[in-house]
C-alpha cells in the first residue's frame, strides 16, 4: 500500500511514518499544501492522510483539488478540530474518514487498512488468518470452517488486533477503538480485559491457536 502523509508537525509525521512503514505501508511525507499538490501531480497513492491546518492553507483545498480531478485516492482527515461542521464539510468533499488528534497509531493503521480494503474490493471480503477466517461483510468469524458466535465488540477487537498484528497494543488504544467518539469520556479501560478474555476463549474452544498474547500491565498483541 502506498500512502501520502500531509502533516506539518515534523515530529508527529516521523512517528506516523515509522509506524506505517514497519507495517509494510510505503509512506511519503508532505509538510504543506504546495508540496502535497506537487507530489499528487507526480504520483498516485492508495491513501492520503490529510491534516487540515497547514502552514500555507487548509487541507480542505487539497481535498477539493482531489475531488475536482476525480482522483481515486482514499482520504482520511486527521485533525485536531473536532467540530461537526468541519467533519461534515470534509466528508462532503469526498473524505472517507475523519480521525481526531490525538489518536493511537494502531487506530490510524486499522482505518487505513479498512479504507484500502474498501477501495480495492477484490470480489471477496474474506480475510484468512491461518485456520481463522473473518468475513468482513457478514461480520462473522469461523475457525476451520466452523462459524463461531462473537459479539460486535469482540469482532471489532479481532479486526483491530489483526490489523496491527505483531504490534503491541495498549489497553487504552483498544478501549478507545471500541468506544469511538465517546472514548474520551471513559476513565477506566479495564472493560477491554473482559472482551479480550471472551474472544480468546471462543477462538481456543473452536480449536484455533492462541494468537492473543497478553503484555502484562500494558495491553495485548496478536502474534502470528
Amino acid at each position: 500500500m502506498k500512502l501520502l502523509l500531509i502533516e506539518d508537525e515534523a515530529d508527529l509525521a516521523t512517528e506516523i511514518k515509522n509506524y506505517l512503514i514497519s507495517n509494510d505501508v510505503s509512506c511519503e511525507w508532505a509538510c504543506d499544501v504546495e508540496s502535497a499538490l506537487e507530489k499528487l501531480d507526480l504520483f498516485e497513492y492508495d491513501c492520503v492522510l490529510l491534516d487540515l491546518s497547514l502552514p500555507d492553507g487548509t487541507g480542505m483545498f487539497v481535498l477539493e483539488h482531489l475531488k475536482k480531478l476525480a482522483r481515486p485516492e482514499g482520504v482520511i482527515i486527521t485533525s485536531a478540530k473536532d467540530s461537526l461542521e468541519s467533519r461534515l464539510k470534509g466528508l462532503q468533499l469526498g473524505a472517507d474518514d475523519y480521525l481526531i488528534k490525538p489518536f493511537h497509531l494502531a487506530e490510524l493503521l486499522a482505518r487505513t487498512q479498512a479504507l484500502f480494503r474498501r477501495k480495492h474490493f477484490l470480489g471477496s471480503n474474506i480475510m484468512a488468518l491461518h485456520e481463522i477466517e473473518v468475513d468482513l461483510m457478514a461480520k462473522s468469524v469461523s475457525v476451520s470452517g466452523q462459524q463461531i458466535d462473537v459479539t460486535k465488540k469482540e469482532f471489532e477487537l479481532l479486526l483491530y488486533l489483526v490489523a496491527n498484528k505483531n504490534r503491541i497494543l495498549s489497553k487504552s488504544s483498544l478501549a478507545e477503538h471500541l468506544s469511538g467518539d465517546m472514548a474520551y469520556m471513559l476513565d477506566n479501560h479495564d472493560f477491554v480485559y473482559t472482551h479480550i478474555k471472551n474472544l480468546k476463549r471462543k477462538l481456543i474452544q473452536a480449536g484455533a491457536n492462541d494468537y492473543i498474547k497478553t503484555v502484562y500491565g500494558l495491553g495485548y498483541q496478536w502474534v502470528m
Binding site: D11, I16, K101, P102, F103, H104, A106
Partner: peptide, 10 residues
Amino acid sequence: LAIFQSKLDN
C-alpha cells in the same frame, strides 16, 4: 499530546 502518544505507540 498527539506526538507524545505516537512516540509511545512506536
